[in-house]
Design a binder for these strands. Structure first.
Length: 210
DNA sequence: CTCCCGATAGGCT
DNA sequence: GCCTATCGGGAGC
C-alpha cells in the first residue's frame, strides 16, 4: 500500500474533500514541463447511494470502472466536450470520489493561459477549465494510481491553509436526487479562482489564505 | 454582474 | 434517443 492509498483511505470522503483545499496539484508532463496550482474547490461524491454519483445504484461500466479502484486512483471522464477528474477515495470496492473543481495557478501560468486562450481567473476556475489549462484533453491517465501518474497531489504538506472553508450544494447535478441538497461542495472562502462565485466575495489581498 | 440558453462528445439502454 | 459532475456568449439589469 503506497502513501496515497493510505491518505485517501484515512478519513471520510467529506473530510478528505476539505483536507485537499490548500494542497498543491502538480502535473509533470514531459511536453510542457511542470504545471501546478493550489486546490481551492472540491466536491464529494458518495458512491452507490448518491444520486449524483456516476456509481449511483452500483452502476459499473467500462467507462466508470476506475471509480471502483484503489484510493488515490484517477478517474478521468468527459462531460459534454470537457474533461474532468476525480480522485478515488476509501477502501477497495467503495466507488466514492472527490471532484477537483478549481485551482489557483502556481507554476506554469504562461502555459496554462496559452492552453486556455483565456486570462485571469477564467484559466482554472472550473473542473473542465483546469483540465484544459493543464493540457489534459484525453482519458489516457484514467485509472492510474496517483503514485505512478504525472498528475499528483502533494499529500505531505499543505502549501496554504484556508482562512475559512465554505460548504454548499454541488454544482450542475440532478436536483431531483435524494442527495441533491446535501452540502458536499467545499471551497476556500474569498478565493477568486473558485467557480461561479460573485466578485464581491473575493478577497483581493489574501485570496482567502491564512 | 446575473441569468439563461445553445453547443458539444461519448457511452448507455 | 437518452443521459451526463460544463462552458461561454449575450441580453438585460
Amino acid at each position: 500500500m503506497d502513501s496515497y492509498q493510505k491518505y485517501f483511505a484515512s478519513m471520510s470522503t467529506q473530510r478528505l474533500a476539505k483536507d485537499l483545499l490548500g494542497r498543491e496539484l502538480q502535473y509533470d508532463s514531459k511536453k510542457q514541463g511542470l504545471l501546478s496550482g493550489l486546490i481551492v474547490e472540491t466536491e464529494a461524491y458518495l458512491g452507490v447511494n448518491d444520486s449524483a454519483s456516476h456509481a449511483y445504484n452500483g452502476r459499473k461500466t467500462s467507462y466508470t470502472k476506475s471509480l471502483y479502484g484503489n484510493p488515490g486512483d484517477l478517474y478521468i471522464y468527459q462531460i459534454r466536450s470537457h474533461y474532468c477528474f476525480d480522485v478515488v477515495v476509501q477502501k477497495l470496492g467503495e466507488p466514492q470520489g472527490i471532484l477537483i473543481r478549481a485551482l489557483e495557478p502556481i507554476v506554469g501560468l504562461d502555459t496554462m493561459i496559452r492552453n486556455r486562450q483565456m486570462q485571469g481567473v477564467n484559466v482554472t476556475n472550473g473542473p473542465g477549465k483546469l483540465m484544459q489549462a493543464l493540457g489534459i484533453q484525453d482519458r489516457q491517465m484514467d485509472g492510474l494510481p496517483m503514485s505512478k501518474s504525472p498528475l499528483q497531489i502533494d499529500i505531505n504538506s499543505k502549501t496554504r491553509i484556508p482562512q475559512n472553508i465554505i460548504s454548499g450544494v454541488r454544482v450542475g447535478i440532478n436536483t431531483k436526487g435524494s442527495t441533491a441538497d446535501r452540502k458536499l461542495r467545499f471551497y476556500v472562502a474569498r478565493n477568486p479562482f473558485v467557480s461561479k462565485i460573485k466578485k464581491r466575495d473575493v478577497d483581493a489581498e489574501k485570496h482567502g489564505w491564512r
